[in-house]
Amino acid sequence: MTDQPTGRRVVAWTSLSLDGCTSGPRGTQYDTWLYEHAGHEQTGAYFESIWRGADTALLGRTNYEGFASVWPGITRDPATDDRTRALGQWLDSVEKVVFSRTLTDAKWENSRIAADLEPTVRELKAAPGRDILVLNSASIIQALLRAGLVDDLRFAVVPTILGGGLRLFSDDLPDSKWRLMETTTLAHGAVGLHYSAEA
């Protein structure tokens, strides 16, 4: 029997195209493939099973600014469904750490800016709490993979080929091995994958 890991787990979450991209060329595909995927009820239920286990969210500047510009309005819209509203309330209340060397003011409640990724995440992992969830930020996930700080990879692989864009797995990532923990098939053809790092 191996010893169980101690401390909080860093869970990297993102949606991927079949060709491994988190966004299309110049971001032009966002409002089609990713928005449609996120709008499916099963996607919402699957993601809820992930975010409910976390009490800290890590974001890059671009995702943070995008989330902060739309989620408060979605959360307060009376037409928003209960599951989406619950996600918005979690996003409002969760501790949010934004990694940026250019952002000077994080106005969304419970947000703070950090410039140094690795020491900040090591501090968070050593502190008491639940999972630390990286929200869709490819650059943050890549940097944490290089530092060996990702405990779990959680993907939704969407049946779309973008033919280019921002790839999650860049050529400079170190070798690593992962153990498949769970697969989930969503009704619209996406597949949820959960991998844990092998010791």
Results as ranks from 00 to 15, higher is better:
Gly192Cys: 09
Leu173Gly: 00
Glu182Ala: 14
Thr184Gln: 15
Leu153Val: 07
Pro78Lys: 14
Arg83Cys: 04
Ile140Arg: 02
Lys96Asp: 01
Val157Leu: 15
His194Ile: 08
Ser170Val: 12
Arg167Cys: 05
Gln142Ile: 01
Gly148Val: 03
Gly66Phe: 09
Trp90Asp: 00
Arg83Ser: 13
Val191Leu: 12
Tyr195Ala: 02
Trp71Cys: 03
Pro128Gly: 10
Leu173Lys: 08
Arg101Asp: 11
Glu118Ile: 15
Ala147Gln: 10
Leu103Ile: 08
Phe67Lys: 00
Phe169Leu: 14
Trp108Gly: 00
Asp116Thr: 01
Glu65His: 01
Gly189Cys: 03
Leu168Ile: 03
Ser100Ile: 00
Ala68Glu: 06
Glu109Phe: 05
Phe99Trp: 00
Val191Glu: 11
Leu145Ser: 09
Arg85Cys: 04
Val98Cys: 00
Arg146Asn: 01
Ala127Met: 10
Ser170Glu: 13
Thr183Met: 14
Ala156Ile: 15
Gly66Asn: 12
Ala106Phe: 14
Leu103Trp: 03
Arg85Tyr: 09
Ser93Phe: 06
Leu135Glu: 06
Arg85Asp: 09
Gly189Val: 02
Asp105Asn: 12
Gly88Gln: 11
Asp151Ile: 03
Lys96Glu: 02
Arg146Ser: 10
Arg130Met: 04
Leu153Lys: 05
Ala138Leu: 09
Thr184Met: 08
Leu103Glu: 09
Asp105Tyr: 07
Pro78Ile: 04
Asp151Gly: 01
Arg167Val: 07
Ser100Ala: 00
Ala68Tyr: 01
Glu65Arg: 00
Tyr64Ala: 00
Val157Gly: 10
Gln142Glu: 13
Pro78Cys: 11
Val121Glu: 08
Asp81Arg: 14
Gly148Arg: 14
Val157Glu: 12
Asp77Cys: 01
Ser196Asn: 07
Ala187Ser: 15
Phe169Val: 12
Ser69Arg: 13
